[in-house]
Nucleic acid binder design. Structure first.
Length: 978
RNA sequence: GCGAGGGUAGCCAAGCUGGGAAACGGCGGCGGACUCAAGAUCCGCUCCUGUAGAGGUCCAAGGGUUCAAAUCCCUUCCCUCGCACCA
């Protein structure tokens, strides 16, 4: 055994992320490395406060969540190296119903839920029982997933500050927030449409739905036709009362078509009622009566009868006064809207076909006591004109689609097309008075408004069937609720100002915030049940999740110390004193003032990092509340919005098990690899794709980096005084790298920063390794200096590895070393330009060798003659304009003699010069080109395994067997391979 | 429909905020060096043509502005996300 089982100890320095990372995690834990407290006597100028929405532990953490927290961590680490005192806290959002729902599904033993828990998130069988209470459930995922995951990732979180939104002290804070809002009149009571399960008799959330999750509330216009109502339950219309005053509300989404109504439909089989609705007599379906009851109308059913009972009666159009006939139709759904439908055959393909079919069998209608001739006499009434359709648009549409009957599937398309066309380009006829000649789109709302109250009424209805998980029918109900008045003008103004001041990253999100403020209405901020804080003045309600997460970043600043304050002391005055100072209350609690100081030190939030999907609610709410509660200097300074994550090109989905858990990824690749990949895959706001092959390759790159660094650290220190031009060239490139990375991090561009510090600079190093003799003391020093700088640049992204190596190299961890600054003395633009020429030369030689398929034994290089440089000089003087250059150059008699030759060089020079600015051109012209190639000759000989000879084009002893030398132009030497 | 962001070589992905002419990188593929060999590493090639560093045709499609466009403008097609009371 022995040698075969143990395997060779690979050089002993191979990259072992698990071991390195565990050491640092332990060290951070023991040192309390990221516990941030205000510096003694400091005013907060050095404070940076970074937050991220607290996770919602209704399930486990996956790699998509990991990035949300890693990006702010990288920024926090960057600011620490810049010398800031940085606070990056974390807490847990448990408010509302999702956790409760998850627990219930677990307790019911739902297969899907069990699969998510056990297969996706690896909850062991024996732990399942701990998950049967909401807080037990939350606790499990907080401890076993989120916290473990975050700690493994090396997030620089101050863990002393964690809390859950179900904590009693947090609730005291939320109570203060909502009492304050109420005092300001920004929380009000009112009616709001909600999803209401008619079986459970309570409001339900989207998550409670079995069907119709995508259903929208639609506001129907009810056209109040009037007519006689039946007065009893018999299907005998002889008993109809002659009041002529009952309302037959007909629901439509196109109120402007009211003038085109030719008849109405009801389902003769369905149950209808005569009911008193808000004191009026209405005739509607029984289902509709229930809906109106839920929508806060006073409904009293007076009589019940089959639809048949009203078939054949006439009702009067409230706009035109015309009488229309009620006809029977099987397609009427009594459970949709009012169950009484108006028919506009000129503009609705459905109605057009239905009418035709009905007219074809008009004789059958005598059974309802209807005169067939009256039905046959019905003609479509057009109310608008539209290009591309005939006088009767519905007729054109039906004919064009070749529709023969009402069960033709093409009918739906025809209807959609026509509705769309009419909405956007239908012009109303003359009868519309002040609305005549207008396009529907522009006047529909005004038209409806115009007739609201008398001819028109409204109701809410879902756009599709909605069914509760319990199997019950879900209807739109109006509920008494407390809501936040996000449409309050003053509040809006303040919030818009907050948006103006905001550093919105990326910048194009600013408009989205503004847009959101524009359309945001009242927001119901309470639920009937759920975890969280009860509304202080109405204990039966709970403040909902998007409403109790708007100001809480303040709470982080005092979270550890507030634990020492007895809960009962945390009254309204306490928080008033804490946030608004001693003068805000009569008798300020000294503890409150003390906490207030810490708040004042950390606030405002410098950057909040959050998903881009939250702009339209959470993030905008956050701005609203801060704008209202705090003075301008405490408003949010910046928001960085984050993109979505994909897994192997597909959406992640915990229910499908299509997720990667951070713990598993870290175990396999190491936390640095996971972090680096997440930070480098794209900029924070862009979407990214977790692809295993790419992660693997990232891991390989880090390993290579680590091993190379190890070698350097173990090798000799070198000598700064021995550096040569190549070394200076590399050091100059390093300065540009520092500059790029720094600028990028100021804008949270983690991809650009890592790309520059890692991959970008690797390219330079690659060249340097080819070019330079690495055993020289000057090179050793350079490489170690470069390594030290890069480790500091990489510390925010790969803190474990960077710390480990930096400490070995210098004695201090990278995170304790300052962020590198550009050293202008190390910039050498002239060397960079010269080196660029050598690189271009290598490329050219390669190309020629490749095209001619030769392996040269001798390479001859010819630098351009001096007179050609004069032409270049002219370009620098007069600019990249061939004409101007020529006239300048032709004043020189020597050059004038060369005529055409000069012209050619001038053209090349102008083209070349376009890539460089004046300074660079001056540097180029100052360089001794031939010397640069001569200095590179040894290198070129190594590279190509050939002899290299360098000449000036016009040397007396130039060897030019193939007559190439004349091709030379400045900075582009002629070459000949043989 | 409204709002936002996109469509770049086999794949991923820069460049598109100050228009300059094959377009950074990476993966994959091909060839080579090193090696007993594999891996790792290094070098070259990877749109078409080409025995001299070139020419041709390109950046969803079409049109326009310009000496010059992936980059600016217009039109069309396609994809992703949000449109709420849900985290």
């Amino acid at each position: 055994m022995g040698i075969f089982t143990a395997g060779p100890a690979l050089s002993g320095m191979d990259y072992d992320p698990q071991a390195i990372e565990e050491r640092w995690r332990q060290r951070w834990r023991e040192e309390g490395r990221y516990e941030a407290d205000p510096a003694e006597g400091a005013d907060g100028d050095d404070a940076t406060f970074v937050t991220v929405p607290y996770p919602y532990p209704s399930g486990g953490m996956h790699i998509g969540h990991a990035r949300t927290y890693t990006v702010p961590d990288a920024y926090a680490r960057y600011r620490r190296q810049q010398g800031d005192n940085v606070l990056f806290p974390m807490a847990w959002h448990v408010t509302g119903t999702p956790i409760i729902g998850a627990v219930e599904r677990l307790k019911k033993g739902e297969a899907e839920q069990l699969s998510v828990l056990q297969d996706t998130y690896n909850v062991p069988e024996e732990d399942l029982s701990d998950l049967e209470t909401p807080m037990g459930f939350a606790e499990y995922f907080i401890e076993e997933h989120y916290k473990k995951g975050m700690k493994s990732l090396g997030l620089s979180v101050d863990w002393r500050r964690e809390f859950t939104t179900n904590d009693e002290r947090y609730s005291k804070f939320i109570e203060w927030q909502y009492r304050t809002l109420k005092e300001k009149g920004l929380v009000e009571k009112g009616l709001h449409p909600v999803n209401y399960c008619t079986d459970e008799e309570q409001p339900v959330t989207t998550h409670d739905l079995l069907e119709g999750e995508d259903a929208e509330f639609q506001e129907y216009t009810l056209v109040r036709f009037r007519g006689d109502s039946p007065d009893n339950g018999d299907a005998d219309r002889a008993g109809a009362s002659d009041d002529g005053d009952a309302v037959f509300p007909m629901a439509t989404l196109r109120p402007e078509t009211v003038r085109g109504v030719t008849n109405a439909y009801v389902d003769p089989e369905a149950t209808y009622v005569r009911a008193s609705v808000d004191g009026e007599t209405w005739v509607i379906s029984a289902d509709a009566a229930e809906k109106f009851d839920l929508q806060d109308r006073e409904v009293e059913i007076e009589a019940e009868f089959a639809g048949e009972a009203i078939v054949g009666t006439t009702v009067a159009n409230p706009i035109t006064g015309d009488d229309v006939l009620i006809l029977p139709a099987g397609f009427v759904d009594a459970d949709n809207a009012t169950g009484v439908v108006m028919s506009v055959p000129a503009h609705s393909p459905d109605d057009y076909v239905a009418l035709q079919e009905l007219q074809a069998r008009a004789d059958d209608l005598t059974a309802y006591g209807i005169d067939p001739d009256a039905v046959r006499a019905i003609e479509p009434i057009p109310i608008l004109s539209i290009e591309g359709y005939g006088e009767i648009p519905a007729k054109s549409a039906v004919e064009e689609h070749g529709i023969a009957s009402s069960d033709d599937p093409a009918l739906e398309e025809a209807t959609n097309d026509l509705y769309n066309a009419e909405f956007h380009s239908g012009v109303l006829n003359d009868e519309y008075g002040e609305f005549a000649g207008e396009v529907v789109e522009d006047v529909r709302d005004a038209f409806r408004e115009h007739h609201a109250g008398d001819a028109f009424d409204t109701m809410q209805e879902f756009s599709e069937e909605v069914v509760c998980r319990c199997g019950g029918d879900v209807e739109v109900a109006y509920q008494e609720t407390w809501f936040l008045r996000y449409n309050d003008e003053e509040w809006r103004e303040k919030t818009l100002r907050a948006i103006e001041n905001l550093d919105a990253i990326p910048e194009n999100t600013r408009g989205e915030y503004e847009h959101t403020v524009g359309w945001l209405n009242e927001w119901p901020c309470i639920r009937n049940y759920g975890l969280g804080t009860r509304l202080p003045w109405d204990q039966e309600f709970v403040i909902e999740p998007l409403s109790d997460s708007t100001l809480y970043m303040s709470y982080y600043t005092v979270a550890p110390h507030i634990q020492d304050v007895p809960v009962e002391d945390l009254d309204h005055e306490f928080f008033d004193a804490m946030f608004y100072g001693a003068d805000a209350v009569d008798d300020a609690d000294p503890k409150a003032l003390e906490l207030g100081e810490e708040w004042d030190y950390w606030y405002p939030v410098d950057y909040r990092f959050s998903g881009n999907d939250l702009i339209t609610n959470h993030l905008t709410f956050y701005l609203y509340h801060h704008a209202e509660f705090f003075p301008e200097p405490k408003w949010p300074q910046g928001i960085v919005v984050m993109g979505m994550g994909l897994l192997e090109g597909q959406k992640m989905s915990s229910s499908k098990g299509h997720v990667v858990l951070p713990g598993e990824a870290i175990e396999r690749f190491g936390a640095d690899t996971v972090r680096f990949f997440l930070l480098n895959a794209s900029e924070p706001w862009q979407d990214y794709d977790w692809r295993e092959d790419a992660v693997e390759s990232t891991h390989d790159q880090l390993r290579r980096f680590y091993n190379r660094a190890q070698e350097l650290i173990e090798g000799p220190a070198g000598d700064r005084d021995a550096v040569t031009d190549v070394d200076r060239w590399l050091l100059s490139k390093l300065q540009a790298t520092i500059e790029t990375a720094t600028d990028a991090m100021e804008r949270s561009e983690t991809r650009t920063a890592t790309q520059a510090a890692f991959y970008g600079f690797d390219e330079q190093l690659k060249w340097y390794r080819r070019r330079a003799d690495l055993d020289r003391p000057g090179a050793r020093w350079t490489l170690r200096h470069v390594l030290e700088t890069r480790l500091r640049l990489l510390a925010p992204f790969t803190p474990f590895m960077a710390n480990e190596l930096h400490e070995k190299l210098t004695g201090t961890p990278a995170e304790d070393a300052p962020w590198p600054e550009v050293d202008d003395d190390l910039r050498a633009p002239d060397l960079e330009l010269a080196e660029e020429r050598v690189q271009a030369l290598v490329d050219d030689i390669n190309e020629v060798a490749d095209v001619t398929d030769t392996d040269p034994e001798t390479i001859r290089i010819y630098a351009a003659a001096d007179w050609k440089r004069q032409v270049f000089d002219a370009v620098r003087e007069v600019g990249a304009d061939v004409g101007a250059v020529m006239s300048e150059v032709m004043s020189d008699p020597d050059l004038r003699e060369r005529g055409n030759e000069v012209n050619e060089v001038a053209q090349d020079a102008v083209e070349f010069a376009r890539d460089y600015d004046d300074e660079e051109l001056a540097d180029l012209l100052a360089m001794d080109e031939q010397a640069a190639y001569e200095n590179a000759a040894a290198f070129l000989e190594r590279e190509f395994g050939a002899d290299v000879e360098v000449y000036a084009e016009d040397d007396a002893d130039v060897v030019d067997p193939a007559d190439r030398a004349g091709n030379a132009i400045p900075f582009r030497p002629a070459i000949y391979l043989e």
